[in-house]
Amino acid sequence: MHSATTHTTPRHLVVLNVLAALLLAIIAVLPMVWLAGVAVSDATVAVNRLPTPAQMTTTNFSGAWQAGGLLRPFINSLIVTCIHALLNVFLAAAAAFPLARTRFRGRDTVFVIILATLMIPEQVILVPLFRTVVKMNLYDTLAGVVIPFAVSGFGIYLCRQAMRSIPREMDEAAAIDGASSWQVFRHVMLPLTAPTLATLGVFSVIASWSNLLWPLVVLQSSSNYTLPVALDQLLGMFSANIRFAYAGSVLAVIPMIAIYLLMQRWLERGLLAGAVKG
């Protein structure tokens, strides 16, 4: 009875909520509207204006693929992104497992060092990083884009937090039954932390798909470019190609929206699990 009355919200608050929701949605979407506007404009529209229906065209999209040469970078980005996400999730989970569960000499030191790597901006270490990659014969290769950032301190931290929230009885029971560390990791830890791992996977995908600076430094031949590098190059060229770059960037957002929609349920569970722990 009581709860029924307390749940009804005053009307002015409902209106305020709807208005705020609309405003936030407009803020979130407005820049994308202009992006799409430039992407579908024909050459008669100034780049900063929105086209009228009569001025719309789809030629920029085919132009982006062919004249803009974005097809190859698109594929390169797909390869880099998938491998990076898989590596990051697997390596981070593996490293987090002993940090969350075992007591061994040097554990806390290792963990502090891992956290310290979070504070290093990649731009600061660009020169030595570049020299290392050249020495390893990874310059101008997709492997050179992926391997240096194959695992992040953030990922290890996230996985450790998730694993610590799993009741110890779960893996102790498995260990008593004679399971090896690997089996405990594979059959207890990985499935129970799946929402966090999925979240980490999605964020690796987003980060890798967006990464501009490092690929810009390490890739030289245009056949190896990732999508952001190719877009940056297109922007730097003739203004005729600007609309191709905008069409290309619309195409660059679509896979990310798709992955968000596919993973939405996991993502929200993962974010909730991670954040509640603080």
Partner: peptide, 30 residues
């Protein structure tokens, strides 16, 4: 609403910056 508000998060920084360059254009930006 959650999808729309999450859209900027999944947008690559270069793409976000490109759209804002259009909005911020000093002569005829919106």
């Amino acid at each position: 609403l959650r999808l729309l508000l999450f859209l900027p998060v999944v947008t690559p920084a270069i793409v976000a910056s490109m759209s804002f360059r259009v909005l911020f254009n000093e002569t005829d930006g919106v």
